[in-house]
Amino acid sequence: MPMRLRKPMHAERRRFALALIAALPLTAPLVFGARCAWAAPAFDLGALMALLAGVKSGEATFVETRRIEMLDRTLVSSGRLSFKAPDVFVRETLKPRHEQLAVEGNTLTMSLGERSRTMQLDASPEAAVIVEAIRGTLTGNRGVLERLFETRVSGDARQWSLELVPRDLRLRGQVASVRISGREQVASEVRILLADGDHSVMTITPVRASRAGS
């Protein structure tokens, strides 16, 4: 031995497993918010982020449709989303089955029925790319978005659209793009296009939102 006093540690890391489950049904965005009266002449990422950073928390319902090439039918699910700055995000699917995915900081917890698992977001870049796309947009976190994605903003404050393409080519091999669109401070739709052609569209309806300082 050496005298390192520690328990025998399991060396096997079984990463294949991680990759398999890490990336999850994660698609969700929020929306909320109140009106914003001003409209900048040039509506760019900075302007959009400033706009969205004004919303500190909120709840919404979602309906998501997924189109999978191998399946005969479109999958439809619905549930609730909630969000609280700076880094809490929860997606609760109520139909067709109950599932919950909660992110706080770097900790990701998934629950399916009685099973619950906790893992670290940065250990699973495939999951992180989708979580950060949505959470980063909702918090107006320009730094995170620009670090992970090539960004393109179109439209104006009344009707904007943000297209995010992963910078990491490896990740782009899985997630081709995430496109979030909305009006003013309210994100109303998240479209995720996977590299294999499958895609999903999540439509969001705000229930409640609170603004900074209110």
């Binding site: 990336a23 999850l24 049904p25 698609t27 790319v129 996977l194 294999d196 499958d198």
Partner: peptide, 23 residues
């Protein structure tokens, strides 16, 4: 039914792309 639903729920996510070849 339950188990198939749970598997199908993973499709359309990055995890699903690993699952598809064995679906």
């Amino acid at each position: 039914r339950d188990a198939i639903d749970a598997t199908v729920a993973l499709l359309g996510t990055p995890a699903g792309s690993l699952l598809k070849p064995i679906l």
